[in-house]
Structures are given as C-alpha cells and as structure tokens.
Design a protein around this nucleic acid. Structure first.
Length: 574
RNA sequence: CGGGGCGUGGCUCAGCCUGGUUAGAGCGCCUGGUUCGGGACCAGGAGGUCGGUGGUUCAAAUCCACUCGCCCCGACCA
C-alpha cells in the first residue's frame, strides 16, 4: 500500500477523552474512531490487524478440528427464554421488537443458538465429539462502557462450543482449547498467564482465564512466581499474614469492655492497644432476602464471590442500618456473633484455632474481650477472605503478587446446563437417551489488539508484534523528490511485494521527521530508511521496538528484511 | 442508577465568573514558493448553527431552566 493513498488519519495530540494507553494510541495512530459510548469504527489499520488476529485464531482452531460457523446475531427471544437467560442477563441483553411486536434480542454469546442447532441435528453418540466455533460480533448493553476498546457494547468474539458424550470427552475438548489458546496468544506475541477462574453459579466445574498484565485492566490476578500458582482474585486462596500478636492462651470467659465511640476495626484496635489481627470483623449481609453474618479477621476483606459460593445465594447486599439494629440490637461498629440466634453465621478459616479475640458486644459502645470461636459462638467454616497483599502461597508459603490484568480469553466447562434446559440428548451405545455435555470458550479479538498495544508502546507510539501488525515493514525514502531515492524505493517496494512481504510504502512528499514520527506511531515493527547511504549501496533497517538500526545492502535488502521479519515472528511455545 | 467533569473549526484549548464591535490561538487542512535524516520556513487562504431547546435581556458562547452527548469514579457486570 502507498501511504499517500492510504487513509491513516494520525493525530499529533492525544484526544482528551482517551485515558488508557491503548485507547490513546489507537486513536492517535488512526486505527479507530468512536461512534458512540462503547461503539467504535475500525479503520484501515485496525481492520488489517484484526484480520491477522482472526487468521491466527482460525488456523489454531482448525488445527484442533474445530469447524467454523457463522450464526445469527439477531436472536428470537424464545431461544433465550428456554435457557432462562432471557431473564438472567437482565439489562445487559439488547432487546428489540420486530414490526409485529415479536421480541428479539442481539446475541451476547451463543450457547443457546449452538444448543438449538445441536439438538435439532445430533441424534447419535457416533456424531460426537463436535467443536463448533465462529468469529462474530457480539452485543452487550454494558452499564458503563470504558477504556476505549477494552469494555464496549459491540465487539468481535471468537466463541466455540464443544459437545461430548461424557466428562472424559469434555476434558479432552477443554484441554485442546487450552493448548490452542496458548498457541494463539503466543503467536500474537502476547505475554499472558492462564489463571484459575471462578466458574460462577452456572453449574460449571472448571474454568480458566487468559490474562495480560496491564494497568488498564479491571481484573486482579494472584500470582506466585516460584510455584506458578495463578488464580483470579475472586477464586484465589492463600496463607494469610500471621497475627501480629499471639492470642492470650488462658481459658478466659468473654468480658464486656466499654469502647465509647470506637466503631471501626482501626479505632477499636487502637483504643484497646491491640493489633487488628486480634479482632473479629462482623459483617451482616442480606442474601436472597435472608440475613447472613460473616466473620473475618479484623484486617481481612470479604470476598464477595466466595461469600456467594458459600451461601449459594443468587444475590446479596449489605444489610441496611435498620435491619442490623433489628437483628443485633446494636448498630454496625459494635456487632458480634456471641448470643446471636436464628441467623446463619459463616466463619472464615483464618479464625480457626484462634482464642480470646475481640468482637462487638451487640451493645452500642461496647465490645467483648476473650471471645473464642466454637466455644463462645458456633458457625459454618468457609474460606471467605479475599487474598491480600503480603499473603503467601497456600501450600509452600512462597510470596504472592497481586497484579492488574485484562482478560483476553476464557475456557469453561459448562456441563449439562444447556443440554438439560434445552433438551439436547443423543442415543448412547445402548440406545439410551443421554444428555450431551458442553464446554464454551471465548476470545475477545479487540482485547488481543488492545493488550498488545498496552504491552508494547512507548511515548512515540506502539510497536506491535509482527504477526498482528497491520504491515510488517514500512518503507521510508527520506526524500521522495530525489529521483535516485524514489527509484530505489519503488524497486524495493515492488520486490518486497513480489516476495510476499506486507509493506507500507511511505511515498509522501513530507519532511523526514514527519514520516519517522508517523511510522513510530502506527506501530509497524520494521522500518527501512532509504537515504543518504544509498550512494554506497546501503539502506537502514530499523527495529521499532528496540530502535536498533542495521545497515543492509540494497542488493540483498529483500532477503535481509524477510529474515528480520521471520526472526521476529512470535512462535507458538505449546 | 448515584457522584464528578467536559461539550467553542479536524485536534488541543482560550474566551464564560463580571452579557456589548466581525468568536480567538497553536497544530492540522488548501494554494504558491523555499526546504528535506526526527513533527521545517515564508506568503496567501478555507473552515465555527459556540451540543440542542426554551427563557431572561435592547443585546447571550457568556445568565437561568430543561435536555442530549461524551469521559471519569462508584454501583452493576457469566
């Protein structure tokens, strides 16, 4: 492509609405333009990049025997009503009506439609296993679109679905996907981690997310560099930091202490000259309309996901002040489990074995000393605590890190949820009707691009991996009006194209500075300068990411450029 | 949905508080010329219903009300 003819609207200044790096870069580099909140148009460069990512995905999906479909994005409501998700998805599902008033929705994922196809066609175990996938636009009415392309209302997703006769088959399909995903992200040149993820209340048994570390992300991952342990913060487990002070060992009875106006854990700890780790934090939540009390060590935070799993509730919220007073006879700040009746009490594992701690006395302005779990109150033991900075790996005690990430893919064992809800059965070897077990697997295509931009950009712009960059090399004659430079550049351009290299030829009659700045901005991994050294038969090959410059001979330029590109091409490591 | 911020040529912004000639700057864009290894220079030029509607006023980018849009924080989110 000739740059003089290409539509690459680069911006000198960062548009004010962009805060995250990938958003700023993609706008400045002329990849994307916004149409509305969470709605973007992909221009020439973005589309080239997106197509390259999709091609890598296709190759790796095809390699595991997956078959590419393209399903309807416009879905009749009935299909979603059958699975129950027409209601579950709430406002996140875009809904509309046709001219006759029939309800429709825009697909945000395609378990229902894939299951609809499968149940109409799959009759025999002999037809299994199947893996079906598509790369398709998805619609989600996000409450708050943000961060450029990272959280949008319309986006491209590769989604695949596996159908197997039993759990062993599902295990195989899941593992195939895990490897394929690693290969895809390897080939896209990303640094990522696969982490254990919360499987949700959807009946799934196992789930992993593929995460890229970036400040622009919204997820937190707990990582152990020594053992390789990696889990989403929602799911992660750890050894807590040990209590700062030992518990009194004696066999003491609870004792009321006056703690006027001391409400928070910090205030009470300071007032009693104790460490926060010696206190019991008492939280009251309303889970599916019923109050539940959660007890944690004073310095610990409740994990909402773990709380939800422990209670099995659909939804929960903090109790209102009136509800708290009715249940405890005191307000938040003086709550405790001692003497509570007719309420479910969940106790975090970090309190197991502790003695003579301090908690609220259920009387405003008072706390209890010498409270010991299982002696002074009873409850169900659960892991309720969110992993915190300073915690260590649960098996080995090795240090843990908590890093901010963006999720680029997930793989998920669905189980029989959709088979049961929608009646997807086949006949097994014995002629018995058997439900089909499913998995679902997703990749956010834009997020792959964004993650690459987040990982590989500097003050001058981005430097995309050669496998997903819109072009592999940009050809920059320093002065296009110089006939000898122009002639050499024209020839090299034509030779590179003949050799199958994706080349952008900057034939614009602009000052060199502008051309260099633009080339840096749009992230093409290699630049060939044709300039003053041409007289000696030399060109310059510049690596965008490292800025390393090598002189190559004009004669052997095509071979040298191809070699550099192939050397830089990210390889699958799995 | 709650809180905050912002809407003025393509981009970044000034002007608004304290209403008053023809609404400004830099960058970008167009024409001509000179330049040419890291966002060149000179000269000339085009381009704006000041987000929208209504109101106050002799007079509104500026004051008031409503409204739309976008961004950020939170809530929410498989």
């Amino acid at each position: 492509m000739l740059w003089s003819r290409a539509f690459i609207p680069t911006l000198r200044e960062t548009p004010a609405e962009a805060e995250v790096v990938s958003h700023q870069m993609l706008l400045r580099a002329g990849y994307i333009r916004q149409l509305g909140a969470g709605i973007y148009n992909y221009l020439y460069l973005a589309q080239r990049s997106m197509l390259k990512i999709q091609q890598i995905i296709r190759e790796e999906m095809d390699a595991i025997g997956a078959q590419e479909f393209h399903l309807a994005a416009l879905n009749p409501a009935e299909v979603w009503q059958e699975s129950g998700r027409y209601d579950v998805m709430g406002d996140n599902l875009f809904r509309l009506k046709d001219r006759y008033g029939r309800p429709l929705c825009l697909g945000m994922t395609h378990e229902e439609v894939m299951t609809f196809i499968a149940r109409g066609e799959l009759r025999s175990y002999k037809q299994l296993p199947q893996i079906w996938y598509q790369i398709q636009t998805k619609f989600r009415d996000e409450p708050r679109p943000k961060s450029g392309l990272l959280r949008v209302r319309q986006f491209l997703m590769k989604d695949s679905y596996s159908f197997d006769l039993g759990p062993e088959g599902l295990d195989i399909a899941y593992e195939k996907h895990r490897i394929a995903y690693c290969r895809i992200f390897d080939r896209c040149g990303l640094e990522y981690v696969a982490v254990e993820a919360h499987s949700g209340a959807m009946g799934g048994s196992q789930s992993q997310e593929f995460m890229v570390a970036t400040e622009a992300g919204e997820d937190y991952v707990v990582l152990c560099r020594q053992t390789g342990y990696a889990a989403n913060l929602e799911k992660a487990v750890s050894r807590p930091v040990p209590p700062q002070a030992p518990d009194p060992a004696e066999d003491l009875e609870p004792e009321l202490v006056h703690t006027p106006d001391q409400k928070t854990i910090e205030e009470v700890a300071r007032f009693l000259a104790l460490a926060g780790t010696s206190l019991i934090k008492t939280l009251c939540l309303i889970a599916d309309s019923r109050p539940v009390v959660a007890l944690l060590r004073g310095d610990h935070q409740l994990s909402e996901t773990k709380f939800q799993s422990a209670t099995g509730c659909q939804e929960f919220r903090p109790a209102h002040p009136e509800e708290i007073r009715e249940l405890f006879g005191a307000s938040a700040g003086s709550l405790g489990p001692v003497g509570l009746k007719d309420v479910r009490i969940l106790v975090d594992e970090a309190l197991r074995g502790r003695r003579n701690m301090v908690c609220g006395a259920n009387r405003d302005g008072y706390h209890l000393k010498n409270v010991t779990p299982e002696e002074d109150f009873q409850g169900e033991w659960h892991d309720l605590r969110q992993v915190a900075a300073g915690d260590t790996e649960i098996e080995t005690g090795a240090p843990l890190e908590i890093i901010k990430c963006v999720e680029i893919g997930h793989i998920f064992k669905l189980g029989y949820k959709y088979a049961h809800a929608m009646g997807l059965n086949v006949l097994d070897q014995n002629g018995v009707e058997t439900p089909v077990i499913m998995g679902s697997y997703g990749i956010g295509v834009e997020r792959v691009l964004c993650a690459a931009v987040e990982l590989y950009s500097d003050k001058d712009g981005m430097s995309l991996p050669v496998s997903i960059a819109p072009f592999e090399v940009v050809l920059t004659p320093v002065k296009i009006s110089d006939p000898s430079l122009r002639e050499a550049a024209d020839r090299l351009y034509s030779d590179l194209r003949a050799a199958g290299v994706d080349v952008l030829y900057d034939d614009r009659d602009l000052s060199p500075g502008v051309k260099f700045k633009d080339a840096d901005l749009i992230g093409i991994p290699f630049r060939v300068n044709i300039g003053r050294k041409l007289a000696e038969g030399k060109l310059e090959l510049v690596d965008r990411r490292t800025r390393a410059m090598t002189e190559i001979s004009a004669d052997g330029a095509v071979a040298a450029i191809r070699e550099a590109i192939e050397r830089a091409r990210p390889q699958a490591r799995h």
